[in-house]
């Protein structure tokens, strides 16, 4: 029999896991196409949360506008980071671009601290929502919304990647950039598109995170980004379903470890999970063995 706390914790775990999944998708897509661990990806979430805070708290404008501007802002920022910081290094050694990503991450964190201060800001509630009752179990409507939005976003992404022309071009570029050029594919545009999609998902993640946890702080992206990165590797970096499964597993593990009173161990458990999976399956749960890059 399901008891009340189990259902509540399950929902909490899926809520957190969904947010990790959305962020993990961006990591995995960018890695898939240019083999870059985009360390600045977590910080994009932070910027998204601040945009919502500015729009609603500072400018007193509507939550719908806050959502639109957060997602649009993250999308633009992701593309801009690629164009300014990564694109000039496309032919440079992978280590240079990795270090650049770390630099961008510091830049965003310190920039936010400079502009907004180190203290967390409270992001107002976007919508008033009544919780649902299932028998005598109260279901958080925010949790349900987060799970549904994540499921829909993942479905749309899967469709785009598998069925649309740009999505197929993404897959072609990620397998063999030179061959993709010979097909007439504009590789730079395809990479920009990948950053745009990954960052839009991060923007959605930023809004959902702010709905659930109502805070924006300059360093919020660090732990979120790290967990989502672990989720992406756990699921198999480069794999879209892998990122979702990894995200949910990390979210559920953290929540249940905390629920049984071991919350100080939750991060350790997540990293332990990662180590075990990588020992058993070095490519992650759904990762493919590395195909040779030509």
């Amino acid at each position: 029999m399901f008891d009340v706390t189990f259902v509540t914790q399950l929902l909490n775990g899926l809520q957190l896991g969904s947010i990790y999944a959305l962020i993990a998708l961006g990591y995995t897509m960018v890695y898939g196409i240019i083999l870059l661990l985009n360390f600045a990806h977590g910080d994009i979430i932070m910027v998204g949360a601040y945009i919502s805070w500015i729009v609603m708290s500072q400018l007193g404008m509507s939550p719908v506008l806050a959502i639109i501007l957060s997602v649009a802002g993250c999308t633009l920022l992701g593309v801009l980071i690629d164009k300014v910081a990564y694109a000039p290094l496309r032919d440079a050694p992978r280590l240079s671009i990795l270090i650049t990503a770390i630099g961008v991450s510091y830049f965003l964190e310190n920039g936010a601290q400079l502009v907004f201060g180190a203290d967390a800001k409270v992001v107002p509630q976007y919508f008033e929502m009544d919780n649902l009752m299932l028998g005598d179990v109260q279901l958080s409507s925010v949790s349900l919304l987060i799970i549904i939005v994540t499921a829909v976003s993942t479905a749309v992404l899967t469709y785009v990647v598998n069925r649309t022309k740009l999505g197929k071009a993404m897959r072609a570029v990620s397998e063999d950039m030179g061959a993709a050029r010979l097909m007439g594919i504009n590789v730079n545009n395809t990479i920009s598109f990948t950053f745009a999609v990954g960052s839009a998902l991060a923007g959605i993640g930023a809004v959902l995170y702010s709905m659930a946890y109502t805070q924006a702080s300059p360093t919020m992206g660090i732990m979120l980004g790290t967990k989502a990165f672990v989720a992406a590797v756990l699921g198999g970096i480069g794999s879209i379903p892998g990122a979702v499964i990894g995200g949910l597993l990390v979210g559920l593990a953290e929540t249940f470890v905390s629920a049984i009173g071991l919350s100080v161990w939750k991060d350790a458990v997540v990293f332990l999970m990662l180590i075990i999976v990588l020992v058993v399956r070095p490519t992650g749960i759904l990762g493919r063995p590395m195909t040779e890059k030509v």
Binding site: K168, R171, A172, E175, D176, G178, A179, V294
Partner: peptide, 10 residues
């Protein structure tokens, strides 16, 4: 191209 370079996952 030399070596065919088809997109093996597609």
């Amino acid at each position: 191209p030399e070596g065919r370079r088809v997109f093996t996952h597609m």
